[in-house]
Design a protein around this nucleic acid. Structure first.
Lengths: 318, 318
DNA sequence: TTGTAGGCGTTATCAT
DNA sequence: ATGATAACGCCTACAA
């Protein structure tokens, strides 16, 4: 007991004893057992980040922000990948609940309804990350996708584009649906036309989608890719086919690639503060852990349109 | 007790009782406490991956490979970033030891000597990842950097290059030193010359290093960047200055960028099987956890030289 | 087939 | 200022 007090500064300990304890700790290489501590305190000093795929530079950056913030507050970070699967998501949340993590930051595959129920029943602090869902009883940390899509719509309209193909993610995934909806709403106009192509958030789909888009009549003069992978897949195919960007077709992406990963950043994109999102989520989930009665809050981080060289005036119409 | 048996199939339980238990589990949403289990069993079903920076696509991919493998064997994965700092590394390993993780996969900042001592004294299964260190008592999973560098040396020699600048990482970091050494050894030749520029594994250093390299006399006709960030930084500056690749200068990188992240992969690189490395490390660390007497083994994965468009014949010498 | 006792390593609480 | 006791939730060993 005295040792415990000495180590944790959790009570009075005489100088002499404290010194003896410190010596012993050093000599024995003693490290307190987290398992035992957790058993007593119900705290594991561990947070979990559940994303769809860390391999996506956007989530990588979120993860780094989260790990830094977690580390600052003396927590460890568990990383989980769901690959957009609701079953995987639920499996992880169950595992994490049993693990007794202090909090979970979740990028929900769909509505996250099961995960939310489970977390609620286990009093597991849960924060929804990146994606907006229909719920008022969960804290959310996300970016302003709506504003981002609106900026894109304005930008393209301003350049005289009338026909745009939206290379979207899976129908039903909130991020994708939301971006589609707000783009549609803002782009609406007398003779403006939008083709929405739903697929997946992958390079492969970007490659396929751009082929489909190019075959549409009338042919779109601009593309709006709803995430970075889709944008890259599309650019690859355009490059291979010799379709010039932006002379022949304009393209806008969502989610920037880290500057440290591109030689010649030319893609006009909506960029999101990924690192801050991760850090912010940790802050929110820890606050929730310390005060479960916390009024659920929604933190919306600003997006930004970075206009680069992949967009230009629409060609004159015949 | 009967409940425990029912849940874990660890002893005889009558059909009737088992059913009742299952019902109760469902009704109550009961999930066993990992903390308590760990306290008894000394197993946490958690592994840790300690890298220098997840943000590096190479480590991102390693992490994904590790998480998939961990998940397959029913383990969770903790992620830690050291930013090449030995203190951070040791801090994490201590934390992880206390946490009682089942194993640690470590990309050592330097020699990892302190971490290894600590792990050994705590009987914490430890696998060294990616970097070769001077030690025979630790399992290692890494790529054949030496062979990779040799391939680069042969390739450049074959193209007639005589003067090469190696844009290296920090002196003392095994990966960097090893690549430098084996490149030097293989490139050696009558009037061949190598400038080694030590810095850090960052885009920023790539930018600086290329400036230094271009100022050298005689001016190098080829650059060898020892990781992907350095290569990108170098390419950025070359691009900005209008130095043409490969007409004016050839460049080779180490570590590929995921194909899903480049529009026009043009960089000749030594590519490493990052995903397999992560998966392999999990396999090794789990084997070690199950059999601490395991003869330490070294698993060396093959590297590959992907010749693309950033290298070409050296210009004729005056 | 089921149940009891005890201990894993901590720490809150109540003595001394 | 220090120590004894008990309990966190689980599971091994041993009865019944």
């Amino acid at each position: 007991m005295t040792v415990s007090r000495a180590i944790n500064d959790s009570g009075p300990v005489s100088k002499a004893v404290r010194a003896r304890v410190e010596d012993a700790v050093r000599d024995l290489g003693y490290i307190p057992s987290r398992a035992a501590r957790s058993l007593r305190s119900k705290r594991t000093h561990t947070l979990a980040l559940v994303v769809t795929d860390v391999t996506n530079p956007f989530f990588t950056t979120v993860a780094r922000g989260a790990e830094d913030a977690a580390s600052d507050s003396n927590h460890l970070l568990l990383l989980c990948n769901t690959d957009e699967s609701e079953e995987e998501e639920l499996r992880y949340v169950e595992l994490l609940a049993g693990q007794g993590v202090d909090g979970v930051m979740l990028v929900p595959a769909r509505s996250g309804i099961e995960s939310r129920k489970l977390a609620a029943s286990r009093r597991l602090p849960l924060v929804i990350l990146d994606r907006r869902i229909e719920a008022t009883d969960v804290p959310m940390v996300r970016c302003d996708s709506t504003a981002g899509s609106q900026l894109v719509a304005e930008h393209l309209k301003g350049l005289g584009h009338r026909t745009v193909a939206v290379l979207a993610g899976p129908e039903g995934v909130p991020t994708s649906d939301e971006r589609v909806a707000s783009f549609n709403a803002s782009f609406k106009g007398r003779d403006n036309q939008v083709f929405v192509l739903n697929g997946s958030f992958s390079t492969q789909w970007g490659r396929e989608a751009v082929e489909i888009a190019l075959a549409k009549k009338p042919r779109p003069t601009a593309l709006f890719a709803l995430n970075n992978f889709i944008a890259i897949g599309a650019l690859q195919v355009l490059h291979e086919k010799g379709v010039r960007v932006p002379e022949d077709i304009s393209i806008v992406g969502f989610d920037d690639l880290p500057i440290s990963m591109t030689v010649d950043p030319m893609l006009t994109v909506v960029s999101q503060p990924a690192y801050e999102m991760g850090a912010s989520a940790v802050e929110v989930v820890l606050r929730l852990a310390n005060d479960p009665t916390l009024k659920t809050l929604e933190r919306v981080l600003p997006t930004e349109l970075l206009i680069r060289r992949s967009t230009s005036k629409a060609p004159p119409r015949k």
